[in-house]
Amino acid sequence: MAFEQQARTSSLLLRQGKMKRVLGSCLSWLYLACIYGFIFLPVAVLVLFSFQDGRLPVPPFNGVSLQWYEAVFADRKLMAALANSFLVATTSSIVACALGFLAAYALARYRLPGSAWQRGLLIAPMTVSYLIIALGLLAVLNTLGIPLSLWTVGIGHVVINLPLCFAIIYASMGDHHINIERAARDLGASDFKVMTLVTAPMLMPSIMAAFFLSVTFSWDEFIIAFLLSRFDVTLPVEIWSMLRSGLNPKTNAIGSLVFLISVAVLLVLELALFGRSRKS
């Protein structure tokens, strides 16, 4: 009798436990659905109304039309801004990666006096708002009478991306690489050859990661590009000026395009890099 009762309570407990788990997992999925909804709502609306057959990118949806995409491709200023953004992003990222790699190599491999200070100095721009970096540069450029151009935007973007590149590459320079470089030197490689034939290729995954992250940041950066450019502008600045005309399906179209291109690039990188890392 007592045993039976015990058995019954334990099966009840078991059932309660199961109920609790099912309930918990239901709540989890519900939460997941809601938050994904929140995350994707604006993007979905953006893309949907880029196909709007009408002058306003808001409901009701009048039907599918590609007219706004045509308008985007016909817009010479927008296309020029796209090219500018690409140019500034790649150039500034290459410079940031190169400087970051050299500095990381020196600080990870040689014992320099004050290396902690040097690391701190190189990382410092990361903790300062872009707006402040842009203002400082603007003030100096104004005082020196240097005209604003894509070059000045590029300089600003190297300032914000250098700490990032340095930190990523420095973090990947493990001590286990030291013996590999020693081996190369032992086999007769000069310092330059060790760096170009051994260290850089060995760290290529993290150098590429730093590069693509920099490109992303530079590509999307607004405030520095806005304050430090004049006639030639980058894409975010051009889109910004389009916004002044209010809600416009053309803005949806260029926004969707940028999004789709980014996702495509991301997908290719993911497949290429992740596929490779899985093999090893």
């Binding site: 995350i39 604006p42 609306v45 953006l46 950066e221 926004g255 996702v263």
Partner: peptide, 20 residues
């Protein structure tokens, strides 16, 4: 998937909330 909209342009992301 959770971070996909990260790759919309920053300016456009705010704009798309305006649509909503």
């Amino acid at each position: 998937l959770a971070i996909l909209p990260f790759w919309t342009s920053y300016v456009v992301r705010s704009y798309s909330w305006l649509l909503v």
